[in-house]
Computed example of a mutant assay.
Amino acid sequence: MSPDAVPATVLVFSQRAEVRTAVRTALGSAPAPGVGPVTYLECATADEVVAAVDRGGVDLCVLDGEAQPTGGMGISRQLKHEIADCPQLVVLIARQADRWLAHWSMADATLAYPIDPLTAPEVVAGLLRDRAAQRPAVRR
């Protein structure tokens, strides 16, 4: 890890443990140079996600768009409307045709599921760098 690496907290939401594990595995503890170490916060329900983001300290959320009963797209839209300093939001989509729904959800990015371990870290690292650049004085 480089000395200029920015630590980050990434919330991973899915009611399915295997999806949360796949996201953590694909992203790793340091997704790209200058980003990391990453601390993961796992949530299995929409209420857990909202409570965690309300508490603060979350830099990025990866939200399962296929989650049941409340999907990541609905949560994304809710967070964008309700949280003043909303973390960066990534929605996992199973079908490329769902990109328009992710756009409606106001997500900052989408990732296809199953998650690509080459693409996902690049997307997440870019969003985390953007977040760090917006808030340079608020680092742990």
Rank of each mutant, 00 (worst) to 15 (best):
D4P: 02
M73G: 09
I93E: 07
W100S: 14
C43D: 03
P7C: 07
V50E: 03
W100T: 14
R95W: 13
R55S: 11
V19W: 02
G65A: 03
E122H: 13
V50K: 03
L128M: 06
D47V: 10
Q96V: 11
L111T: 00
G74W: 00
R20Q: 04
Q68K: 14
T70S: 02
A97Q: 13
L127F: 02
L27Y: 06
A26P: 04
V12T: 01
V62R: 03
S76I: 02
M1S: 13
E42Q: 14
Q88M: 15
E18N: 09
P7S: 09
A32D: 15
R77C: 09
L101D: 11
R77H: 14
R99Q: 15
A112T: 03
A94L: 08
V90M: 00
V53I: 14
G28R: 12
D4N: 13
P33W: 07
M1W: 08
A125E: 00
A32N: 06
V91R: 02
A67R: 02
G56K: 11
C43V: 13
M73D: 09
A84S: 12
V53E: 00
V23W: 03
W100V: 15
P37F: 06
V50W: 02
E122N: 06
A133L: 13
G28Q: 10
V53N: 00
D130C: 09
L127T: 05
T119I: 15
C61S: 06
Q15A: 11
T119Q: 14
A109E: 13
I93D: 00
G65P: 02
R139N: 10
L27H: 06
L89H: 06
D54S: 14
T119K: 14
A137N: 12
D54T: 15
E66W: 08
V12K: 03
R140G: 12
V50N: 01
Q68M: 12
V62E: 07
V50Q: 00
E42S: 10
P69C: 05
L101A: 10
V123E: 01
E48A: 15
A8R: 08
L89Y: 09
L128E: 00
Q78E: 11
S105T: 12
P3Q: 02
L92D: 06
A46H: 05
P7D: 06
L92W: 01
A112M: 15
